[in-house]
Amino acid sequence: MADITDIKAILYTEKSLSLQESGTVVIQTSVRMTKNGLKEVLKQYFGFTPLKVNSLRVMGKVKKFKGIEGKRNDFKKFYVQLPEGAKLENVEA
C-alpha cells in the first residue's frame, strides 16, 4: 500500500509551472506508486480527490563518474489535475 513517504517531490520546471496555471501539478514518486494509491494519499493527507491522474515512468540513465559506471534511480511522474481551490502544501523532498 502506498503512503505519503512514496512522494519524493513536486517538480518545479518550466513546463510544470506552465501546467500549474491550468491547475495541473507534477509529482515525482517512487516506482511502486499507482494511480489509485496516489488518489488515496491525496485524499487522506490533503483532503481532496484529484479530477484526473496521468502517469509516466522514467527509467534512470546510465552515467559514468570518475570512470565508474553507475545508474540513476528510476521514478514515476504523475500529472495530477486538482479540483478548483485545492492546493498541495507541506510537501518536502
Rank of each mutant, 00 (worst) to 15 (best):
L11S: 08
G67S: 07
E40S: 15
F75P: 00
G47Y: 05
V53W: 02
G85N: 04
K76I: 00
T13G: 15
A2Y: 03
G47F: 05
S30A: 14
P50D: 06
E92M: 08
V25K: 01
F65I: 05
Q28W: 03
K61V: 09
N36Y: 15
L42H: 02
P83K: 05
G85S: 06
V41Q: 05
E84A: 12
T34I: 10
S22Q: 11
E69L: 13
E14V: 00
K63F: 11
G70M: 14
V91T: 06
E89C: 06
S55L: 07
K66C: 00
Q20W: 02
V53Y: 05
G37C: 13
L56K: 14
L38R: 01
K43S: 14
N36G: 15
K87P: 00
P83C: 05
K61F: 09
L19E: 07
Q28G: 06
V80Y: 00
L82H: 00
P50C: 08
V26C: 10
E92Q: 12
I27Q: 00
K87T: 10
T49P: 03
F75I: 01
R32A: 12
D6T: 11
K35D: 13
Y79I: 02
T34P: 05
T5I: 15
R72K: 09
V41G: 04
L56G: 02
L56S: 06
L51K: 13
G47R: 07
R57F: 10
S30L: 12
Q20D: 07
T29S: 11
G23M: 06
E21Y: 09
S55E: 12
D3I: 05
S16C: 08
E84N: 14
S55H: 09
P50S: 10
F78L: 01
Q20H: 03
I7C: 08
S16G: 10
P50R: 03
D6K: 15
A86M: 07
A9K: 15
G85Q: 04
